[in-house]
């Protein structure tokens, strides 16, 4: 008898759709008006983009194994969001330099993480945690508590507003980004080596994979993607504050786990993280729509997470 199996990303997407349809029954839900439903659906996907992009870096780091994780992502998002805000300062011409700065700074911070993990053998969890502190400190030093700047009109137009057929630019960016991530993981040597070092570092090294180089690259890339996330986040909100990235950190890890990527490494996909980001964003915004207090929202989120990972996050038993 074949056991009925359903892949985690698909399960997460199905869950998101069911939850969304149920949300229509809420007193202030969309009821039976398809136009409002579509608008709400598009809005939730748009809000998922930012978590989704930040979770991309997390996906890479987690697949690379060796207890890989990036706890500095939240602080990097904040730093690059502030940098973008300051550099752009309301001018369209400054958008590209700001994006470049966000990627370079994010990548540099990621590289420091990589050096700590690959050369100094610090456990990724504490290395990136320490860097999160350093980056938060850096933010305080640089801003001294006040940030001045503005985002450019072109950013709002491309990220927050509909571009074609009522679809916001952020979603188009995410779709292209998802395709690139799929190519990177499934169709390149980098991807092949990434899964190899995630499964077993020793055999990977013996079969000619440059493990140290890969680890450095993966953490640098994770930092860059957090940088991209920061750029997109500020482009969407239009304002910054010195905690803007914090709420993305743990959800980015949860999104990866909900999408079926094992935190032990060597297995997973970006599609899973995308689906995870969608589910988490949907639950959060549903709880907000239902006007529940913060305490209830947190408890529901915690229980939902536990339920989801209980369904397919289980590790193998000893008797197998």
């Amino acid at each position: 008898m074949r056991r009925l199996t359903i892949s985690p990303p698909l399960a997460a997407v199905l869950l998101a759709i069911v939850l969304f349809l149920l949300s229509g029954l809420l007193p202030n839900g969309f009821g039976n008006n398809p136009d409002i439903a579509l608008a709400q659906a598009i809005n939730i996907v748009r809000l998922s983009v930012f978590l989704g992009v930040i979770a991309a870096g997390q996906t890479l780091v987690i697949i690379s194994g060796g207890e890989g994780i990036d706890l500095s992502a939240g602080a990097v998002v904040t730093l690059t969001a502030i940098l973008t805000y300051t550099i752009v300062n309301g001018q369209d011409a400054q958008v590209l330099p700001a994006l470049l700065a966000a990627l370079v700074i994010g990548g540099a911070i990621g590289l420091v993480n990589g050096v700590g993990v690959a050369f100094l053998k610090v456990a990724p969890l504490v290395m990136t945690l320490g860097m999160a502190g350093v980056v938060s400190g850096l933010i305080l030093v640089l801003t001294q508590g006040n940030v001045s700047g503005a985002i450019a009109p072109i950013m709002t137009r491309l990220i927050a507003r509909p571009v074609v057929l009522g679809i916001p630019g952020a979603i188009l960016i995410w779709a292209a980004f998802g395709a690139l991530m799929w190519l990177l993981l499934e169709r390149t040597r980098f991807g092949k080596h990434l899964f190899a070092i995630g499964t077993n570092r020793t055999t990977a090294r013996l079969s000619g994979v440059n493990v140290t180089g890969m680890v450095l690259g993966v953490y640098a890339l994770s930092g860059m993607l957090a940088g991209l996330g920061g750029f997109l986040v500020v482009g969407n909100t239009g304002v910054v504050h010195i905690r803007i990235g914090d709420p993305f950190l743990f959800p980015s890890i949860a999104a990866v786990a909900v999408g079926g990527t094992l935190l032990s490494g060597g297995k997973g996909s970006y599609a899973g993280a995308m689906a995870g980001a969608l589910v988490l964003t949907l639950i959060t915004s549903l709880l907000t729509t239902m006007q529940q207090p913060e305490s209830i929202r947190r408890m529901v989120l915690g229980v939902t997470l536990l339920l989801m990972i209980s369904i397919y996050g289980r590790q193998r038993g000893f008797r197998q």
């Binding site: 743990f250 032990s264 915690g302």
Partner: peptide, 12 residues
Amino acid sequence: LRLQPIITTFAS
């Protein structure tokens, strides 16, 4: 239930 500690205790 054999769930991964980081994500489990994060959820709890």
